[in-house]
């Protein structure tokens, strides 16, 4: 049976390989609303889904969405399981050494602490953050005890059940959670981290990167990107300065 599946798969693959490389596989996490999440219908949804589909439409590419655990999202890009990462990933120097980024599609945004206790100790207490994020790195440097989790949701759950004093994450991720939960509130000051959220591509995949880069410039210039940001992140969200973008 295994062999049957493999043979059938191989046969189909050989037939498929003849076609041009016009399907782009978009890797995302699917657990980070409003950036990306699985909706009630079981499909990938969110800001990045809408933006990604728009990018692919303008580039004339067929895009297929794939979910992958955050923890292994970069290794699976480099090994070719998918071609891009759109998963609320901030552009940092460390990541840039391993993969390439397009220009950002969300301006450098604030990270924030949220807690059920308004007086939570942010520098000496236990702070939950998602593994392999710039927020986790920041907590580790801040002197607080870092408690890492595989998914964003678990970081929030850790605060609710008292395991952690506060959660440190992208503010855009925390806003809907704090809005929906009367017990949760933002604590302390916002922290500016990272160089904005960009799309990750394999190093050397320059055609794909330039294609999406050009379209992102257009979307920034005509204000479409700002509309999308406001639609998914709310009126207060940071948007692009149109004059500045237009100058590129």
């Amino acid at each position: 049976m295994t062999r049957l599946i493999l043979t059938a798969a191989a046969a189909a693959l050989i037939a498929g390989a003849a076609a041009a490389q016009d399907v782009v596989r978009m890797g995302t996490e699917g657990a980070y609303p409003p950036y990306n999440f699985i909706n009630d219908q079981g499909e990938v949804d969110g800001y990045e889904r809408e933006l990604g589909d728009l990018l692919c439409e303008r580039a004339g590419l067929t895009c297929e969405w794939v979910t992958n655990d955050w923890d292994s999202i970069i290794p699976n890009l480099t090994s070719g399981n998918y071609d891009t990462i759109m998963a609320g990933m901030s552009i940092t120097d460390e990541r840039d050494e391993v993969i390439d980024f397009t220009q950002n599609y969300i301006p450098p945004a604030a990270s924030a602490y949220a807690s059920t206790n308004p007086d939570a100790d942010l520098t000496g207490g236990v702070i939950a953050a998602q593994v392999n994020t710039i927020q986790a790195a920041h907590v580790a440097e801040s002197g607080a005890t870092l408690l890492e989790f595989a998914t964003p949701d678990e970081t929030v759950a850790a605060v609710r059940n008292g395991e952690a004093d506060a959660v440190f994450a992208d503010k855009d991720y925390l806003v809907p959670i704090v809005e929906a939960d009367a017990e949760m509130s933002f604590v302390g000051d916002d922290v500016a981290l990272g160089g904005g959220v960009g799309m990750g591509v394999r190093e050397g995949d320059d055609d794909l990167r330039e294609t999406f880069d050009t379209i992102l410039s257009d979307l920034k210039a005509d204000g479409t990107l700002n509309e999308l940001i406001v639609k998914w992140f709310g009126e207060e969200a940071q948007v692009y300065d149109l004059d500045e973008v237009g100058g590129r």
């Binding site: 798969a9 189909a12 498929g16 390989a17 490389q21 399907v23 297929e64 290794p75 071609d83």
Partner: peptide, 23 residues
């Protein structure tokens, strides 16, 4: 850290349907 074979050797190829990747 990258293991990069030529695109024709990707298993399954990048443009195969998601169902094939899952299979």
């Amino acid at each position: 850290a990258n293991f990069l074979v030529c695109p024709e050797a990707k298993m399954p190829p990048g443009n195969a349907a998601q169902a094939w990747h899952e299979a």
